[in-house]
Structure formats: structure tokens, C-alpha cells
Design a protein around this nucleic acid. Sequence first.
DNA 1: AATCTACATTATAATAATTCTAAACTATTG
DNA 2: CAATAGTTTAGAATTATTATAATGTAGATT
Lengths: 142, 142
Amino acid sequence: MPKNCNFIEKLREVGLRPTKQRIKMCEVLYNREKTFHFTINDLVKMISEKMNEKISLATVYNTVHAFEKKGYLKEISIDSHKSYFDTNTSAHHHFFDEDTHELIDCDESDIDKINIRKNITGKKINSVEVLVRVASDNQNQK
Amino acid sequence: MPKNCNFIEKLREVGLRPTKQRIKMCEVLYNREKTFHFTINDLVKMISEKMNEKISLATVYNTVHAFEKKGYLKEISIDSHKSYFDTNTSAHHHFFDEDTHELIDCDESDIDKINIRKNITGKKINSVEVLVRVASDNQNQK
DNA sequence: AATCTACATTATAATAATTCTAAACTATTG
DNA sequence: CAATAGTTTAGAATTATTATAATGTAGATT
Ligand SMILES: [Mn+2]
Ligand SMILES: [Mn+2]
Ligand SMILES: [Zn+2]
Ligand SMILES: [Zn+2]
């Protein structure tokens, strides 16, 4: 998946102009072994480090939302005060470490399939996601 | 549970001074048949309507957070741009209607018990919550 | 009941996250 | 290369939330 992917192609395919900012953002986001979670500020820092030039905060916001709309990114709600994004756009569950504020992906085998018995008339289910909040176990003093 | 509960007592018991603002807030929040979900702005409006006087936004924020700390309220994360609170403080799952932005409680029978197989060393599970996003089913045109 | 004191409320300012604006820039098309 | 539509940018605006500091009040002490 990584290597030196052709992000220009990828961007064109979905109708986004391959500007140097977007290509750089693609490299930061997708040119890696594993998917990851980030906040906008994380991303601005990562991009700025990889580029000599600065990147405008507005561009990062705009582009993240453009990517989100195209299905390249997914927004995760764990904290009502900050947006977390995920380069893993598949349906999956999360652990959230309340000590470190770190998000951890679950894979298929970690949580049994969720069985929903409730049905809301006229509505279809778009997603079913589990959030498991964890924190350090400070009751080891038996 | 409703009736004309003694909120003064309740507040005293946990060490909160029963000020008229807090008593009014208790009435708005708990003097009703069913639990409900709200945003800070919802709550400010509801309180203002029930009181002749205005209530300070800062007081609503402070008191909501005081209540949250005491376990009277629970914060729900569905949208990274706004805080939702819940007077149902028990562990429960939600449906979120993406059309109306309405939160709907699930009860025990709606979703089978979640079985978590993953374990993070040194961490204990604080909560396991499911969020089911629904939206209007616009594929009725067979 | 008058006084005291710690805690609360308030209006307002400050901060933080996000979005908007409008001018300058650039990728693509012809 | 010019024209054009889409993009980036700095900075202003907006929104949600938190901090500040003066004023008010509940509950205790006299
Ligand atoms: Mn967003
Ligand atoms: Mn909060
Ligand atoms: Zn993830
Ligand atoms: Zn609820």
C-alpha cells in the first residue's frame, strides 16, 4: 500500500485537483504501513515538518473535510471538545485511553458482532460503533 | 420520582449548596417522567422559560459540570462540535438520528450484551457504549 | 437576629476550535 | 500561452467553552 503511491492519480479520480498541499497531505496520511488517528493540530504539525513551507490552517481544515466527504477520512467522536480523524475508513470499533487520550482500533476478533433488536421506522442504520473507554487500573493495592 | 421532590436535600447530601439557580435547574432536569438529552443551550432556554429572571450562561456551565461530577448528569459524545448531556446516568446505548440530531436511548433488550475480547494491560474498562447512527431510509423507490 | 465566611452567581473578557472572506495563486483546458 | 474554475492563504468572524473578579448569598457563628 505505501511505496511511492500515485496520489496525483488518486486525487484526480475523485475530482480533486492535485495541488502540492494535497499531495503532501496524502503522503503524510497514507504513505505509511498502518492507519492512524489524528487531530487537525497533529496534522498541521506533521505536514509543516515534512514541508519546508508552512501550510495554512484553513487549507488543512478544508482538505480534511474534502477528504472526509470523498471517504478518504473518517471523523471519530470521542470528545466533544476536539475532532479526531481516522485514516482507517472501514467500520470498526475503538478503545479510548482516557489517561493518554489515545485512540486504539479494534479488529474484527476483538468485539463480537453487535446484534441490534431495536428498529426505528423509516430510518436505516448507517453505522454501529462501540467505544470502550479505558483508564489505568489503580486498584492494584488489593 | 417526580412529584415535588426535595432537591434541597439532594443537593445538600452531596455537598452542593441549594441555591435557587441549582434548585431551578434540578426542577427542569429531574422533575419529569422520563430522562432526556440536552445541550447547554437547550438547558439555558428551558431554565429561562421557567424562571422570571435570567440565568447566567456561566452558571449553567458550572452547575452542569458540578452535576456531572456528582453523577447527576452524564456527557454523551456524538458530535465533536457540541456537548450533549443526559439525565439518564446509567450505562446505556444510543441511537442518533442524523436527520433530526435527536438522541434516543436504548434499553437492555435493544442490544445484546457486548462481549469484549481485547484486553489492554494495566488498563481497566470504564465503559462500553454503542452508538447506532440512523437516517431516513430514502431507497423506498424499489 | 446580626455578622461572618466560604462558596456561588454574574457580566464580561479570554481562549480555543472552527468557519468565513476575499484576494492572490495555480492546475487544467482550449 | 491565455482563460477559467478551483485552491490556498492570512486574517477576520463565529461559536462553544472557560477564566476572572466583583458582587451576592447560604449556612454557620456569635
Ligand atoms: Mn467536522
Ligand atoms: Mn465538558
Ligand atoms: Zn480507528
Ligand atoms: Zn441517553
